[in-house]
Nucleic acid binder design. Structure first.
Lengths: 152, 152
DNA sequence: ACCATAAACGCAAGTTAGTTGCAATAAATT
DNA sequence: AATTTATTGCAACTAACTTGCGTTTATGGT
């Protein structure tokens, strides 16, 4: 075990191997690289894009799907639907946030708003069958100014 | 043209044929039945479920997909992702609302909250690239009390 | 009521997205 | 270093969705 010089060390919660082990997974070459791609990406990305970014570390598609599913079930990744064809997107969950998506070019802008918690609280209060919320997703769709200009 | 007795008449905005024509579509037997299923359903439903509910009015899957896509593009239907496997859900858009979904059994409870508009407004104000929002989707995920009881 | 026309349809075939079972491999634990 | 158990890759498969094209059908004009 080589210890890194302080300035080189990643904070533990951004180190793929550490994250994997902490959640009871083996830090295999495959999963480490997959998680690394998602940590660096810092935004939603499709399975096909992940595969491409893996480059020479590419894994079998089955392995990729299984890894993603596992990481989602542990809350390390999040699966989001950006209404772009049939693609599902995955993103590393660092802080909870939402997306503003361009329906035309797919540009994504992230945002967060504490009012969301209030809405969830309201929904719980008014619900007959739910007593607790685990998570939520909010996406706003529109046309970005670049596309708006082009389409005119 | 037979005019219906007042008590039999559907309000125009719930009559599939009227809705179709108003948006420039032909009120074919297929599309009329498809839209009828969705109007009666009053909640998100999968393509497979729609097909089953069509019964003897079943249409080819291609026809179904093309009809759904057209109706979504006109804002008559809405496509939602309830994070249940790979199924996409469609629902008739009567009033804007959101979903509280049980991650276990898939039970759906609809709700709406005016705070959402506020969030959209905030997001627009803070955005660098969006000047206008068309629509948004909000889903809350949790375990319903029935499933919570069973799993214990 | 008939005709023209454009939308909508169904079929066949194809693509993309995601899954299952299983034997081989590689982390982690002892 | 040996053992254990998660993870991997392969082959084959299912599910979800799409494209092209010739035929049918609703609708608006005569």
């Amino acid at each position: 075990m080589v210890s890194l010089h302080p300035i080189m060390a990643k904070s533990a919660d951004l180190d793929p191997r550490h994250i994997l082990n902490k959640s009871g997974y083996k830090a295999t070459k495959g999963r480490t690289c997959i998680l690394e791609v998602l940590i660096n990406e810092k935004g939603p990305i499709t399975v096909a894009e992940i595969s491409k970014k893996l480059g020479r570390n590419k894994v079998d598609e089955v392995t990729l799907y299984r890894a993603l599913e596992a990481l989602v079930s542990s809350g390390i990744l999040r699966k989001v639907d950006l209404q772009r064809g049939n693609a599902r997107y995955y993103e590393f969950v660092e802080t909870h946030h939402h997306h503003f998506v361009c329906s035309d070019c797919g540009a994504i802008e992230s945002f967060s708003d504490k009012l969301c918690e209030k809405i969830v609280k309201n929904a719980l209060k008014n619900s007959n069958i739910f007593k607790k919320a685990d998570t939520h997703s909010l996406e706003i769709f529109g046309i970005c100014s670049k596309c708006a200009k082009q389409n005119r």
